[in-house]
Nucleic acid binder design. Structure first.
Lengths: 139, 139
DNA sequence: CTTGACCTTAAAGTTTACTTTAAGGTTAGG
DNA sequence: CCTAACCTTAAAGTAAACTTTAAGGTCAAG
């Protein structure tokens, strides 16, 4: 699979995929005799995870440290399991973060909706923010 | 309240508060005879809401459209609530997908770990990737 | 009345996360 | 063979969200 095809499938620009390679988020991969990059299917999975993590607010730097070390094409059973477990940890982290975000948003919505239409926003804002802080601590 | 005090209370740098003013996120406020900015308590609430919105993934541009026309008092509650609810739906959808991804990954790990050690790694890897692909499509 | 901690502005600099450009090599179709 | 659509690289450009710098005004304390 060449970079154009991977780009179409993943929805990312080729420049972005090359950028992620330069930044060490995806390992440098096989090249054809012509120098073209040849991707395996797994790369698309990695890209999806990167995008998801970004959507949850992780920086590329954080994501790089989250992803399994990619140096060896040597996938023993143990390394495969370790990599998958690393991914589970990552996904769990994303879910945790999103749960906090959602709780925070819902608290704000509930507060605003409980406010009488003519009321002073900032009087209630105090309580809203107290709620948010509680959620942040609880989550 | 001068900008330094507001900065301490809100945890934001003074430069950041001035930046938000330039960008139209907070209205231009009263000035003392010396030209110093004089903030009301409400400004602190606005700043905290801006930060919360950012954590939820809103850009400053989106936040600017979310906040009230700087007249004063009530921003359009309905617009704000609608935007927040849209965001909650997005976050919830992402969480749902991540939950499926995590379940899928854990199932794959369990299967590999149940495989006798003598098995062919790449045979397994092949199946793993097929699983991941199916799962990605299903989710 | 000077010192130091504030405040002011405009403008330039920084970081992150890319995209675009320039200059060129490769491959498939007519 | 030519053309168009791919691919390659390094380097420069961009946008968002700030921060830092430069050059100065204000104010309370000693």
């Amino acid at each position: 699979m060449k970079i154009g095809e991977l780009a179409r499938e993943s929805g990312l620009a080729p420049s972005r995929i090359r950028f992620y390679e330069r930044e060490g988020l995806i390992g440098s991969i096989d090249r054809g005799l012509n120098g073209y990059r040849q991707y395996s299917r797994g790369t698309r999975q990695v890209l999806e995870i990167i995008v998801m993590a970004q959507q949850a607010g992780f920086s590329l730097d954080e994501i790089r440290n989250l992803l399994p070390p990619h140096g060896k094409g040597d996938w023993s059973r143990d390394t495969l399991v370790a990599a998958l477990k690393t991914k589970v940890v990552e996904v769990a982290a994303l879910r945790h973060r999103l749960a906090e975000t959602q709780a925070g948003l819902e608290a704000v919505i509930a507060r605003i909706e409980a406010t009488p239409p003519g009321g002073d926003c900032f009087e209630n804002a105090e309580a809203v923010l107290a709620d948010l802080r509680d959620h942040a601590k609880a989550g």
